[in-house]
Simulated assay, not measured.
Amino acid sequence: METALLEPARLGGLVLPNRLVMAPMTRNRADASGVATDLMATYYAQRATAGLIIAEAATPNAVGQTYPNIPAIHAPAHVAGWRRVTGAVHDAGGRMFLQLQHGGRVGHPDNSGLHPVAPSPVPLPDTVHTPSGARPAVVPREMTADDVRSTVADFAAAARNAVDAGFAGVEVHSANGYLLHQFLSRATNRRTDAYGGPAEARIRFTAEVTRAVADAIGPERVGVRISPGVTANAMHEDDMDEVYPALVRALAEISPAYLHVVYADPDSVLFHTVRRIWPGTLIANPMLPDVTTEHVSRESDRLVAAGADLIALGRPFLANPDLVERLRLGAPLNPVQDQHLMYTGTATGYTDYPTMNLVMER
């Protein structure tokens, strides 16, 4: 199939064989202590033909844990576990970044053993999944100035750990309602200090984390993910046209390798504003209500035409380990299996999706 997605590209010091990025997707297959498992190594190696894999969110410290069985990157055992994953992907010819995510108010003491922290004591108006089932979210503790400083340092240390574990770089997660995104919104950030109030203050935490991570491992190894207007985890933003241009300008001064926009809309004025301001590589994640070969190719090509350099796909890669080849041939895509299988912790709905060769052999 004729598509811009299959053209080679560059990202920092990496040469990518295509423009397809496997987006980070939490799958809850780590062990109880946050160590990546051999099953995870198999899963990612199956998808190594992606131009770039951005591995699922890993927590930079214990209090940042969101749900059970998500991976972490703040202890030697975490580094060793991820090293098995990156080794398997490298052996299969792939390239990987690791997403760094602190949950903020999206967490629970039953998961981390610690009380969640956030920019302000504004609770998630929802339940949080725990080992004993869904539990009401707790009111988070407002972060002190010392908490802010130590969290910035934890992100930098996590980035160093990620490189030690064999990742080519890291993605700072400032999207989808987690801690950094919580600082950006007036609905979740009611601070009156240097990190709250006007947009220039609310973007400060994301900028400081990004700069610390860039200083730790080099800006060419760093990406940042943002999600303007995304309402995941009960987020609400009423001044996106002010916040995001200011944030993108601040990030541009740090010169990370890429900016990753979630649910990018090629018809959006804000998307074109971000593209105009952002001087580097732009990764766009399209909205895909219909996950078919034709729809994935069409919507992705629209974003490339609107200025995106790389396209991040989630569920298409989840269900199609050979997604690149399917798009090359215009072949049908596997549908995603039952939703509950996404987070069950077993191989079912994870590493058992068939490739085209297996389908043809049946």
Score class of each variant (00 low, 15 high):
residue 221 R to Y: 12
residue 162 A to Y: 12
residue 154 D to P: 10
residue 176 N to E: 14
residue 198 P to W: 10
residue 258 Y to S: 10
residue 167 F to N: 03
residue 238 D to T: 14
residue 173 H to A: 08
residue 234 A to C: 13
residue 206 T to W: 06
residue 167 F to E: 03
residue 248 V to K: 08
residue 222 V to Q: 09
residue 207 A to W: 11
residue 227 S to N: 09
residue 262 V to K: 09
residue 239 D to G: 07
residue 257 A to K: 07
residue 200 E to F: 07
residue 199 A to G: 12
residue 239 D to W: 03
residue 215 D to I: 10
residue 182 Q to I: 12
residue 233 N to H: 15
residue 236 H to N: 09
residue 167 F to K: 05
residue 197 G to H: 06
residue 182 Q to C: 09
residue 193 D to C: 01
residue 152 V to L: 08
residue 179 L to Y: 10
residue 219 P to V: 05
residue 175 A to W: 00
residue 241 D to A: 14
residue 205 F to K: 04
residue 174 S to N: 13
residue 212 A to C: 10
residue 155 F to D: 00
residue 238 D to H: 12
residue 212 A to R: 03
residue 261 V to T: 11
residue 250 A to M: 10
residue 161 N to A: 13
residue 248 V to S: 06
residue 184 L to D: 03
residue 209 V to L: 00
residue 202 R to D: 01
residue 166 G to C: 14
residue 254 I to H: 05
residue 193 D to L: 02
residue 173 H to L: 04
residue 247 L to C: 03
residue 218 G to C: 03
residue 212 A to N: 06
residue 222 V to A: 11
residue 206 T to C: 15
residue 179 L to H: 02
residue 194 A to N: 06
residue 234 A to K: 14
residue 200 E to Q: 14
residue 195 Y to G: 06
residue 258 Y to N: 08
residue 249 R to L: 12
residue 166 G to K: 11
residue 251 L to H: 02
residue 187 A to R: 14
residue 184 L to Q: 05
residue 230 V to Y: 14
residue 214 A to I: 04
residue 222 V to M: 06
residue 172 V to L: 02
residue 161 N to K: 08
residue 208 E to Q: 14
residue 163 V to K: 11
residue 157 A to R: 15
residue 190 R to C: 10
residue 256 P to L: 11
residue 214 A to R: 03
residue 162 A to K: 07
residue 222 V to I: 09
residue 151 T to R: 08
residue 180 L to F: 12
residue 255 S to I: 00
residue 189 N to I: 06
residue 228 P to L: 04
residue 181 H to F: 08
residue 220 E to M: 06
residue 225 R to K: 13
residue 234 A to N: 11
residue 205 F to Y: 15
residue 200 E to S: 15
residue 199 A to D: 02
residue 164 D to W: 03
residue 201 A to T: 08
residue 185 S to L: 13
residue 248 V to H: 03
residue 159 A to M: 12
residue 151 T to K: 07
residue 262 V to I: 12
residue 177 G to C: 05
residue 244 Y to C: 03
residue 244 Y to F: 15
residue 254 I to F: 11
residue 202 R to W: 00
residue 182 Q to E: 14
residue 163 V to G: 09
residue 206 T to A: 15
residue 188 T to N: 08
residue 180 L to A: 13
residue 248 V to N: 02
residue 229 G to S: 08
residue 178 Y to P: 01
residue 224 V to M: 12
residue 161 N to F: 13
residue 197 G to W: 04
